[in-house]
């Protein structure tokens, strides 16, 4: 029983993450910008690191502001690049942003003590120790962003599926894209604080990859992603508690296993139905 109470906050945190990332993941997969969240997370982390070096206390509003400013700049950059369409592949820009943000953080933090541990922490996070206030704060932010996305769902979905058509219809594509990237950036900023980069990345792409195998409709895909994410979170947290191993990596491995199983089952069924 004690274990159950202890596991309640991490479980709630997982569900919160599954909720918002299950949705954003579909956008990300449709746009083919798989690594965007790692880049965004790293940019936000660079803001935090900079604040840390400037001796601003952790948890101070200024730290948050720093991250937000960097995320804003990145969102503008991504939106502008997509709109102007120079001869550059979007994934390349995302990757380069990721690499530069990470290594810049390494340069800045080089002198601080315990930087090895800091990097490890940033990757695996500490979802087991997450507190209710943090979860509720994130939940409120996600709810607002989710609401905005629900109200303007035609715009956002249109942008992810048929960018050119929207552009011709006269939508201000660049600004809508900016809002898309900004909201995604804010979500990732909060999620990374709860779960670490690894778990956020996995929740973003794996559930929506699973749902892509079953359906093409947004409503079904979101639902399937949520179910898969929830099941795996329960299983992963339970096992990590019992075996006393870090929960983030375990949840991620189970998610991947789930995806592989689904692919295998699907390919067997496909073979049965249509022998080649």
């Amino acid at each position: 029983m004690e274990g159950l109470i202890f596991m309640l906050p991490p479980f709630a945190a997982c569900l919160t993450l599954v909720g918002i990332h299950g949705y954003f993941g579909i956008h990300v997969l449709k746009r083919g910008i798989i690594f965007i969240d790692i880049a965004m997370a790293q940019i936000a982390a660079f803001g935090v690191t900079l604040a840390f070096v400037l001796n601003i206390e952790e948890g101070h509003p200024l730290t948050y502001l720093f991250s937000l400013v960097f995320v804003c700049v990145a969102a503008y950059l991504f939106a502008a690049l997509r709109c102007k369409k120079p001869k550059i592949c979007m994934e390349a820009v995302i990757g380069i942003t990721y690499a530069v943000a990470t290594t810049a953080a390494v340069i800045v933090i080089d002198k601080a003590a315990g930087s090895h541990e800091h990097i490890k922490e940033m990757i695996i996070g500490s979802i087991l120790w997450v507190q209710w206030p943090e979860i509720i704060k994130s939940l409120v932010v996600y709810a607002v962003i989710g609401g905005v996305h629900y109200i303007f769902r035609d715009k956002f979905i249109g942008l992810s599926e048929k960018y050119e058509a929207q552009k011709q219809k006269g939508t201000k594509v660049m600004w809508w894209d900016f809002i898309f990237y900004l909201t995604l950036g804010i979500v990732v900023m909060h999620s990374v604080r709860i779960g670490g980069i690894l778990i956020v990345f996995a929740f973003l792409i794996i559930p929506s990859a699973i749902s892509a195998l079953f359906s093409d409709q947004w409503r079904w895909r979101i639902l399937i992603g949520w179910i898969a994410g929830t099941l795996v979170s329960i299983l992963g947290l339970f096992l990590s508690w019992n075996l006393d191993v870090p929960s983030g990596p375990v949840v991620v491995l189970f998610l991947a296993l789930f995806l592989v199983l689904v692919i295998l089952i699907k390919s067997f069924r496909a073979q049965k139905e249509a022998p080649v």
Binding site: A209, P246, A256, K266
Partner: peptide, 27 residues
């Protein structure tokens, strides 16, 4: 053959799994 999943997704999943396993072993 799974056209529903792009190669980038597969790469992403490989990365995720390798990183997660490394993190399990890190301690």
């Amino acid at each position: 053959q799974h056209t529903e999943l792009s190669r980038e997704v597969i790469i992403g999943v490989i990365y995720c799994v390798a990183l997660a396993t490394a993190m399990l072993l890190v301690d």
